[in-house]
Computed example of a mutant assay.
Amino acid sequence: MQSGGVRFLKGHGTQNDFVLIPDLDDALSPTAAQVIAICDRRAGIGGDGLIRIAPEPGGGYFMDYRNADGSLAEMCGNGARLFARYLVDAGLQQPGSFEFGTRGGVRTAQLEPAGDVSIGMGPANVGAESKAELGGQVYSGTAVDVGNPHLVCLLDASASSTLAALDLSAAPHFDADVFPHGVNIEFVVPLGADRVRMRVFERGVGETRSCGTGTVAVAAAFRHSLRIGSAIGRPVGDVGPVTVDVPGGTVCVSFEDGQDGGATLTGPAVIVAQGVIEQDFWDRHR
């Protein structure tokens, strides 16, 4: 913490935006109330979440991610790209490939001083079938674990207007027995054999312009559906990278050796501002 307040940066990945707090002395422990106040878009800085940049005990850095409601989260793909971008821009890591810690496990970043950032997201495990309910309509979905839980609801390829009309101002209902800790829910329309469009309701946040782990979950579920011939009306062989269109832009998800384990997420990461959170504001919201 610097004299007079707490330094922060603001950035986004495909308009999924975050407040970053460098804490290289590991001196800060934001409370849920502080995170909520900082992420408030009218009375705070505003963001879908807060990322504290902390040191790892054995060297390197840890991505301490909190949702906008103050809850802890295992991993955030868009936030991870921004985290990696900051480390390189600040001279804390050299451009190229390096690892960092998250609650979802160790992740690997690949980036140069300019251009997109790639994050090794680890396994994307396709699980059981489940359902989401929204506006009185029930949507079939597939559970996918990307270090955090997702439910991917794949709509018909002709349902673009349905996707656009979904009211995600309130959380969809889901099976709490399947997802006891809550779930991120994606609604997806295929645009071909290697491209999809999605919207997402993130647990602890609401609808966001993008969700990095969500795009990986969607790509994994989509590839699974292609293999059984249910997404575009015909079975296909193994598919390559999947382009995912989100309201905030476009990312690409690829998989090592043609498998759903070992996903890599590639997309932009932009730091737009920096400043200081006033000490009074920080202290008042403990």
Rank of each mutant, 00 (worst) to 15 (best):
H12N: 02
P268I: 00
E207W: 02
A143S: 11
D260I: 06
R42Q: 07
I277F: 12
S130L: 01
A90T: 07
A219T: 15
I21Q: 13
P30M: 12
Y65F: 15
V246Q: 12
A269G: 01
A193L: 12
P55R: 14
L20G: 14
L24M: 13
G206E: 00
F255E: 04
V246C: 08
T243L: 05
R42M: 04
L82H: 10
R81K: 15
Q2T: 05
D48M: 11
S225H: 09
A193T: 01
F62A: 05
T215E: 05
I53H: 04
I271C: 13
E56N: 09
R103V: 03
E186P: 06
I232W: 11
V244H: 12
S169Y: 00
R66W: 00
Y139I: 09
V189C: 15
D64T: 14
D23L: 06
G47T: 08
K10H: 07
E129Q: 12
F222K: 03
S3V: 00
F8P: 01
Q2S: 00
G5S: 12
T208S: 03
T162L: 14
V218A: 03
R85L: 00
A157G: 13
M63L: 12
V270L: 14
N67L: 09
I277T: 10
G70Y: 08
G91P: 11
W282S: 11
F62Q: 00
L226N: 00
E112N: 14
L134E: 08
R286C: 14
L24E: 02
D156F: 12
G248Y: 14
A157S: 15
D64G: 10
T162E: 15
V251G: 11
G77E: 07
D257Y: 06
R41F: 10
Q279H: 03
L82Y: 12
A269S: 01
G122T: 11
H12K: 06
A80C: 08
L265Q: 03
D156A: 15
P149F: 11
L82K: 12
A43I: 07
S3Y: 04
S169N: 13
T213W: 01
G120Y: 07
C252I: 13
E207A: 05
D245F: 05
S210R: 07
G249W: 14
N16Y: 13
L24Q: 00
V152M: 08
A171H: 05
A171M: 11
V244K: 15
S118V: 00
L191W: 10
D175G: 11
D177S: 14
T31S: 15
V6L: 04
S160W: 08
S29K: 14
V236I: 12
P113N: 10
A128I: 04
V144R: 06
Q94G: 04
I228Q: 12
H285E: 09
F201K: 06
A170E: 14
V218H: 03
D260W: 05
Q274I: 02
S161I: 10
P190G: 09
D40P: 15
G5M: 01
R209C: 07
V200H: 09
D167L: 09
A221V: 05
N184Q: 07
Q2D: 01
S71A: 09
G237Q: 06
G77D: 00
A171W: 01
L168K: 03
E207T: 09
P149C: 14
I53N: 00
P149W: 00
L111K: 02
L82I: 04
G91N: 10
L92I: 12
S210L: 08
G13H: 15
